[in-house]
Design a protein around this nucleic acid. Structure first.
Lengths: 230, 230
DNA sequence: AAGTGGTCTAGACCACCGC
DNA sequence: CGGTGGTCTAGACCACTTG
């Protein structure tokens, strides 16, 4: 246990037990350094990790204050679907259902300006059963080499994540009734709900890909964990 | 722009443009410090932020390697429902539908051992319309003072987040058809999908609360953003 | 204007772990 | 064993922002 960890634990304890209640102004770095008998840098190390955890806020001159919780946040990791399935000990497979080139002006969302797009519709299977339907648009302007890629062994999902860096992602989660595509390929009726993940990926200001991934609701839950410090 | 930011940007560029491809071993800290003409600590600052972003991995002796992307991750923030509604410029309200004390042995999930539980069923309204149905169990063993709280102005959601520290949270997101409770209070039919967030909160090993929050699918999307560096 | 956090340096020593 | 990352120090200077 390093000094900065012990200090962090002690600070956590004070916040936890309301010795330092929400809104309280924490002693400044020099003072804490003196109290704990360490260099200022070591105190900073501990405080920075509390900032990252969202437990305190710091402003120059104003000082360091204990934050009142306003929300729970957790990190949502969306793995490559093959890894997700294999992690459950099931057998992964996928089928390319359609693979066409379209003009971005045909995309009602209008995310891609007037670029040429490759649209792939791909079914991911777990132990031979439909697991996820992936409907993807990729801009050939942003990723010219994508036009030539053959998806025999690797799915578009996997190829892109491995090959293409991105700078920002917007993810939307929703529940809805299966649309006609979902019904057909996931073997659902029009009364079945699906869990839908939609993702827009950009590199700089250039849109790379838009993907809609739908899961039969009966077989899908997304789990996230938050582990706060201490 | 501080030196460590400029260095991080330059390192990002090298990873982005495959000058340093996935699997590549990055020069060690001393070498980078010499290259950029800064102290080793400044290099560390830059490298650490790349570790946090998941772009590189570091191991003693083995060195620093560029990671091949395996997933997208983003931070999912679940705000207090009142804030969520007010942020949209709508009027928040809530109605307590039922408020009972039960024994944990009546909870089929068996999360709470044999503690006494307070169970609240609460409807959150946006501009007077049903927005979220919250079905919550709170352990009176973990939070004795919860037994006496009166929820006239503050909802259980808000009271707990503000008052009770936690150490870990397990969140599950799913899509499902409205159950009978959902149908009744959210004014849905048995063919309507709902977006469900379930959360188990613990402090240490002590379970504090389990909550199921259901949203009518037609009005709810959860959006998360990832902003990678650069 | 001054107090506070933010960055940087130059150095030391340590601990892990691959060779 | 020795090379690498991880931690710590003692100091300096800077930049933001509040009183």
């Amino acid at each position: 246990m390093h000094p900065y960890e012990e200090i962090r634990t002690e600070l956590l304890r004070r916040i936890d037990e309301r010795t330092w209640p929400a809104g309280f102004t924490v002693p400044h770095e020099e003072k804490l350094a003196a109290e704990f008998g360490v260099a200022r840098g070591t105190i900073r190390r501990a405080l920075t990790s509390l900032v990252d955890a969202g437990l305190i806020e710091r402003r120059r001159k104003a000082g360091t204050r204990v934050v009142g919780r306003k929300s729970h946040s957790s990190t949502l990791t969306i793995p490559i679907v093959r890894h997700e399935i294999e992690a459950k000990g099931e057998r992964y497979g996928f089928r390319m259902l359609s693979d066409t080139q379209i003009s971005a002006s045909d995309d009602p969302r209008g995310l891609f300006g007037d670029a040429q797009l490759r649209r792939t519709l791909c079914l991911h299977l777990s132990d031979g059963q439909p697991y996820q339907l992936e409907d993807r648009l990729v801009s050939l302007e942003a990723v010219p080499e994508y036009e030539q890629v053959v998806f025999d062994k690797l799915s578009p999902n996997e190829w892109l994540v491995a090959q293409i860096p991105f700078s920002s992602v917007r993810t939307t989660l929703s529940a809805t009734l299966a649309n006609s595509q979902d019904q057909h390929y996931l073997q659902l009726s029009d009364k079945d709900p699906v869990f839908v993940v939609e993702r827009e990926t950009q590199r700089g200001d250039l849109p790379i890909t838009f993907v809609r991934m739908s899961h039969p609701a009966y077989s899908f839950k997304m789990v996230t964990l938050t582990d706060e410090l201490g």
